[in-house]
Structure formats: structure tokens, C-alpha cells
Simulated assay, not measured.
Amino acid sequence: MNSIDRVNQFRDERNWRQFHNEKDLALSITLEASELLEVFQWKTAEEGIKDIEQIKDELADVLIYSYMLADNLNLDIDELIERKLIKNNEKYPVAKSKDKKDKYTEL
């Protein structure tokens, strides 16, 4: 059983599908991402990564809601990532962007 099937099984056993519309899933992604940010609030990056268990949990929540949203919209996660990497490669060619943090509009 793959990840989305396991997530859907968990959801369906609890009859939560009724609460997982696209708007609420998008909101949940943002809320969980904020909880991930809280791990680092008022800390250096090095201090933040010391709480790796909380990072794992919050990142998993972001990913679970992201997978659920993609599944609701019949979107293939691997295809989405491949498509975005192609776009990013065009916006950030190695020759212009290597060792730089500039936005593509500034390259």
C-alpha cells in the first residue's frame, strides 16, 4: 500500500473525507507549515534542528495534507514535481544561478 492509500484509509476509517475539501486542505497545509516554522522561532538554524522529532512530525503533516489535496484533484505528485523542476531549470539555469541565491528575475 502506498502513502496516499494509507492516508486515505486512515481518513476513511474515521469518516473524515467530508471535512477534507480543497479549501480546507490548502488551509491545513499553511497551518502545519506554520507549526514547522515554530520549531525554529527565536532560534538559530542549528538550535532548531535539534528538535528533529518535532520537525519530522510537522513536516509529515504538511506532506499528508499536500498528498490529500493532490489526490482530491487527481494530480500525480511525481508528475507535479517533474513539471516544476523543468520550469525551475528554465528559470534558474546552472550557468546563471550556481552559487547564487538571487531570484530568477535578478539573474
Rank of each mutant, 00 (worst) to 15 (best):
Glu79Leu: 04
Asp51Thr: 09
Ile77Phe: 11
Glu47Arg: 02
Met1Arg: 10
Leu80Asp: 03
Ile49Lys: 08
Leu59Arg: 02
Glu53Gln: 12
Asn74Asp: 13
Leu59Glu: 00
Phe40Gly: 05
Glu22Lys: 12
Met1Trp: 07
His20Thr: 05
Lys96Asp: 14
Asp76Cys: 00
Lys100Cys: 05
Asn8Ile: 06
Leu69His: 04
Gln18Pro: 07
Asn88Thr: 00
Thr30Cys: 12
Tyr65His: 15
Lys84Asn: 08
Glu46Gln: 15
Thr44Lys: 02
Trp16Ile: 07
Glu79Ala: 12
Arg11Ile: 15
Tyr67Gln: 10
Glu35Thr: 03
Leu31Trp: 02
Lys50Arg: 14
Asp102Ser: 12
Ala26Thr: 07
Lys43Cys: 08
Asn88Ile: 00
Leu59His: 03
Asp78Ser: 07
Asp102Pro: 02
Arg83Thr: 11
Trp42Gln: 11
Gln41Pro: 01
Ala95Arg: 06
Asp5Thr: 07
Arg17Asn: 08
Asn2Gln: 05
Lys91Cys: 04
Lys84Gln: 11
Val7Ser: 08
Val62Asp: 02
Leu31Val: 13
Asn2Phe: 03
Lys50Thr: 08
Ala45Met: 08
Ile64Asn: 12
Met68Leu: 15
Arg11Glu: 11
Leu107Lys: 14
Leu73Pro: 06
Val39Ile: 12
Ile81Gly: 01
Leu37Ile: 06
Asp71Gln: 00
Lys96Tyr: 14
Arg14Cys: 03
Glu79Gln: 08
Lys84Leu: 06
Leu59Gly: 01
Leu85Phe: 08
Ser34Phe: 10
Asn88Glu: 03
Ser3Lys: 15
Asp76Phe: 00
Asp76Gly: 00
Ile64Cys: 06
Glu32Ser: 12
Asn15Ser: 15
Val94Arg: 11
Ser3Tyr: 10
Ile55Leu: 13
Ile55Val: 15
Ala70Gly: 13
Leu85Ile: 09
Lys84His: 01
Asp5Tyr: 07
Arg83Ala: 15
Lys101Tyr: 10
Asn89Phe: 06
Ile77Ser: 02
Leu27Asp: 12
Asp12Met: 09
Tyr65Lys: 10
Met1Asp: 10
Val62Gln: 02
Tyr65Gln: 11
Phe10Trp: 11
Ala95Asp: 11
Ala33Glu: 01
Val62Trp: 00
Asp12Trp: 00
Gln18Met: 10
Ser28Pro: 04
Glu90Asp: 14
Lys96Arg: 13
Phe19Cys: 10
Glu22Val: 08
Glu35Cys: 02
Ser3Phe: 06
Ala26Lys: 08
Asn21Asp: 15
Glu82Thr: 12
Leu36Trp: 08
Ala26Asn: 05
Asp57Thr: 11
Ala60Phe: 03
Leu37Pro: 01
Trp42Met: 09
Arg17Tyr: 04
Tyr65Arg: 05
Leu63Ala: 08
Trp16Ser: 03
Asn74Cys: 11
Glu46Thr: 12
Ile52Met: 09
Lys43Asn: 10
Asn74Ser: 15
Tyr92Cys: 01
Arg6Phe: 07
Lys43Pro: 06
Ala60Asn: 04
Asp78Tyr: 05
